[in-house]
Design a protein around this nucleic acid. Structure first.
Lengths: 158, 158
DNA sequence: ACCCGACTTTGTAGTCATTACAAAAATGAG
DNA sequence: CTCATTTTTGTAATGACTACAAAGTCGGGT
């Protein structure tokens, strides 16, 4: 895609084959992949691909502002192409990460308590609509974690 | 402190010396330490302490709901005793993490878009009031990152 | 007090994600 | 084509965390 080459050039990154393929993958697969997922996915197309190249490329993209790195939960780094404001929801059952397009107005000012805010992340965790099994009305067949009554935040962590 | 032993018993954790010291440290040092920081800090008191014990203990505390593990930024796991809902702010200059007592009303309902929400994290990043050097009115002496004009989100909302 | 079984701690070794580094390959200007 | 620069690659190193088994600790029953 010519688009991708243009994007790379606009960000002062030489459009090598590896870089184009990695950015293309991230554009087409909005699944917040880890570096390893990207590596595995591109091994067929680029048999000589090195994991070092994936890391180098991702870090270059982040440096230039094309990507955002996420530290959501469980100490895993994931990368996403979408840099628009949105909220992340991670399912503790299936592990899938959802982008929620809910907007929020919190702290849209530059400073809070004297601190200058440059990044703002809202991360939710729970059980996604698929894993909650909406076919049954009762909670009988839900995983144990899904049945717990929520009493306060931060209590559940798998 | 007898308090700490009571807390452990209430959570069905046998109050061994190591566990008491680790919980005591977390109670007295609200600095969102890493496992290694805790280990380093207690080595004087408990010369035989093993890092495995620190990890085992922290995981047991999390399991029982005494602690919360945080994945804020930079892929580092930190632990905090305060399980009340609050917001985290990390300074990208000094690395210090601040608890902000701002309350927030977002998605305190159980479900959003059909997903059951059990955890809710708001993480801010920027430059803390100390590193912004409030003594100077101009931005001349600020670190480069502090001078950037915020143009797009993750920072602020339109 | 002793014994025994269960729990806890410890150290070592292993895993996994990420980075450091240097050699090999590709690229591009002259 | 040639040479210098950039990019990719593979290996080795780092660092956080876990698995596992041996050693230590503790408490109840006799």
């Amino acid at each position: 895609m010519q688009d991708i080459i243009e994007i790379l050039k606009e960000h002062n990154i030489a459009p090598s084959m590896q870089r184009v393929k990695i950015l293309e993958y991230l554009q087409n697969n909005r699944i917040h992949p880890t570096a390893d997922i990207i590596y595995q996915a591109l091994m067929d197309e680029i048999p000589t691909l090195s994991k070092t190249t994936v890391y180098n490329t991702l870090n270059a993209f982040i440096e230039k502002g094309i990507l955002v790195a996420l530290s959501l939960f469980e100490n895993e780094v994931r990368y996403e192409y979408n840099t628009d404001p949105h909220i992340h929801f991670k399912c503790s059952i299936c592990g899938k990460i959802y982008d929620l397009d809910k907007s929020y107005d919190l702290y849209k000012d530059d400073f809070i308590d004297g601190h200058k805010v440059t990044e703002h992340h809202v991360n939710l965790k729970g059980i996604c609509k698929n894993c909650v099994k909406p076919t049954t009305r009762s909670t009988q067949r839900l995983p144990e974690i899904a049945k717990r009554k929520i009493t306060k935040f931060h209590t559940l962590r798998s």
